[in-house]
Structures are given as structure tokens and as C-alpha cells.
Nucleic acid binder design. Structure first.
Lengths: 193, 193
DNA sequence: GGATAACATGAGCTACGATTCCGTTTAAGT
DNA sequence: ACTTAAACGGAATCGTAGCTCATGTTATCC
């Protein structure tokens, strides 16, 4: 058997557990409203030393990348549900999926920041998930367009743009309501007039 | 004459000149695509020492605040032109002003960053200009609504929200075109369907 | 139960950028 | 010209946050 195909020794139990603790701590801290979270804070929250964080993730960006990847997995699951759903109004199905994804994003300042200002390494780490996102979004967009409910010039790629814009609004909840913003955009997407 | 009303001695000529040099340098550096600019870099570009920057602005946020204030003055001037214009389609007048303001913002990463993530001190410094902005935007919004061209539930306050969202898109020009985003939103604003 | 490779720890190193401080220079008033 | 308060310069300081590494611990395999 070629060496590169051998199953590597599985991670030790404590290591696996700590990895999850770190990710959970990062999610919790980043879910708060403060955009900047230090590695030390994540380590403390996870109940491990900083060294342990760096054993599992080469640097901060890698940790962030992993979180973004997880988040996109959630988005994708939701889009898949919408695709499988089949019945119902295609535009509304798409809109509902966007609303749900937006609601999730609203409580995750970390992903927002990554979407808006993250370095390319963060995106590279979640490359596959992002591509899958665009593919599934394209399915829903195409259905809504075929049904004549979506403006013909709206593209699947615009979905990410819309969500990116929404992220900015979400960052200032004391000034604006992102729901208004989303509904405004949805009206712009809808065919007619 | 009460002391607090006496005209304070005018700023020394070199001081006045340096203040302008600093602001100009800051504008130039912040107009580039990099969101983070150091005080040292601004000072070097202006051809003065860091100490001089701190003589004119108590801290970095104060300098940023002044830049944001200037930017809003530009926005306001444009809105006033649109108000004075009078003739022409009210919705298109509003849309044109938004497009122009957006174009200006697209080349100013500093204001974008301030709009999206700036601390409240930055906004406090530009308080008057921002309020004036909302007042003038309200005039244009009201005209477009009266003409039946704007959705009745669109509010002047939403203008800022839209621009804030646009800012996020502008930050990733290699991925999205903010013009598409703006046109999408404008369609959402327009009455009908 | 002992050997060993993984793993964990956290004080401290390093880099960076904002801000300060004081000796020096200079505009402006007489 | 001379005085002086205002302004300047920029090395040094300070705080912060990412990251490293020498030492101690433990899961796993036999």
C-alpha cells in the first residue's frame, strides 16, 4: 500500500476533544457583538492553553477559516432543503432560504467580518463549500427565473453580494434593521414593473 | 466682552498649512485600497513629524472623524444640487445623487471603513453633517414618493442603510460590482409590481 | 505497569502601531 | 533685531496581540 494512502493514526481522544472545545469557544466568543477576539481569550474560554490552540490551528486565520467553512456548510444544508422541497412558489422558496441564512449570519459577527474583510486565506480554506454554495444557489435562482418570478438579469453570483451587503447593515443594529434591507433587496430581485 | 467670546489668536501660518498637508496626506493614503493606514505613514506623506499630527488631532479617531465630516459635506452638497435642480423625474434625481455619492465612496476606503466599523466618536464628530444628510435625503425621498415613483414604505433613513450595504460590496471589487448592487437596490425602491 | 509518542501548558518573545515628551526651531508681535 | 509663545521633530515609550518553545503530562499500545 502506498504510504500516502495509509490511514494516519487517529487523533488522540483528548486532542479530539480539545479541538472541539476550541472551536466551540471560538464560536461562542465570536457570536457576541465584538468583532475582535483574541486567541488567548478563546483558549481561556475553552479551558486550554494557547499552545494547544496553535497545535490544532497553525494560525488565527486557519481557525477563522474553519469557522467560515462550518458556517457555509450550514448555508448549504439550508439551500439543499430548499432544493429538495420542490413544491411551493420558487421565488418564495429562494427568499425563505435567504432569510434563514441571513438570520443565522446576524448572530455571527465572526462570519460577517470574514465575509467583508477576511483575507483570501480564509476563503481559500472554505473554497469547496463556497463553490457548492454558488452551485446550489444557482439551482434555486434558475427555478425562480424559469417561473418568471425573478428578474432575468439577476445572477446566482449576486446572492453572495446581497448577503455581503446585508452583513454591513447587521453590524449596526442600533441604527438599522437588516430585515428591512433584505426585503428591499428581495423586491429588487422580483420580476415585474 | 466675556472672555469665552474673544477671538482666539489665529493659528500660525505654518500650523495652518501643516494641518492641511496632514489632511491631504490622510485623504491620499486612505483613498487607496488598503483599509489600515498608520499615523506614521500619514505624517511621512505630509512631510511632517508624528508629533505634529498629534498637535492637530488628539488621536487617530479625531483625524478620521474630520475626514468623515468632509466626506459628508460632499454628499450634502450633491444632495443640495439635486434638491435645487427641481426639474426632471424625482426618482431619477434621487437615483442619480445616490449613484454619484456611491461612486465617490467607492474610491475612499477610509470612509467606507468608518461607515461600517467606525467607533461612535467618529460619528459624533460628524453628527451635524450626518443629520443634515438625513434632512436633505428626506426632501428627495418625499418628492419621489409624492410623484408615486417610490415605494410608500421606503424611508429616508433607509438611504444610509443602503449605502452602508454598498460599502461592503465595494470592499471586494475583485468579486462583485457595486454598480450591480446599487441598481438592484434602486429597483427595490421603485414603486410598482 | 512501563515505554513512548502525542499532546498540553503558559510564561515570555516579538512585532507593530499608537502616543508621548522634551529639546529645537520659527512665526509673529514690538 | 529681539523676544517669546507656538509649533515642530522624531526617538523613545507603552500596550497589545499573535505566536513560540522548553518543560511537564497522559493516552495508547504492548
Amino acid at each position: 500500500m502506498p504510504p500516502e494512502l495509509e490511514t494516519p493514526r487517529p487523533m488522540r481522544a483528548d486532542a479530539r476533544r480539545n479541538r472541539e472545545l476550541i472551536l466551540a469557544a471560538a464560536r461562542e466568543l465570536l457570536a457576541s457583538d465584538q468583532p475582535d477576539v483574541q486567541i488567548d481569550a478563546i483558549a481561556a474560554r475553552a479551558g486550554v492553553g494557547v499552545g494547544t490552540v496553535y497545535r490544532h490551528f497553525p494560525d488565527k486565520e486557519a481557525l477563522m477559516g474553519e469557522l467560515v467553512r462550518e458556517r457555509f456548510n450550514g448555508f448549504n444544508a439550508r439551500l439543499q432543503e430548499a432544493i429538495d422541497d420542490g413544491g411551493g412558489d420558487p421565488f418564495e422558496t429562494l427568499a425563505a432560504a435567504l432569510r434563514a441564512n441571513a438570520a443565522e449570519t446576524a448572530s455571527d459577527a465572526a462570519t460577517r467580518r470574514a465575509l467583508m474583510t477576511g483575507g483570501e486565506r480564509v476563503f481559500a480554506h472554505a473554497q469547496n463549500e463556497i463553490e457548492e454554495f454558488e452551485r446550489r444557489a444557482a439551482v434555486l435562482v434558475e427555478r425562480a427565473r424559469s417561473a418568471g418570478e425573478l428578474r432575468p438579469d439577476f445572477q446566482a453570483h449576486d446572492i453572495g453580494m446581497v448577503m455581503c451587503g446585508l452583513c454591513a447593515t447587521m453590524g449596526k443594529p442600533e441604527v438599522w434593521e437588516w430585515q428591512r434591507h433584505l426585503e428591499l433587496v428581495l423586491r429588487g430581485m422580483r420580476a415585474g414593473a
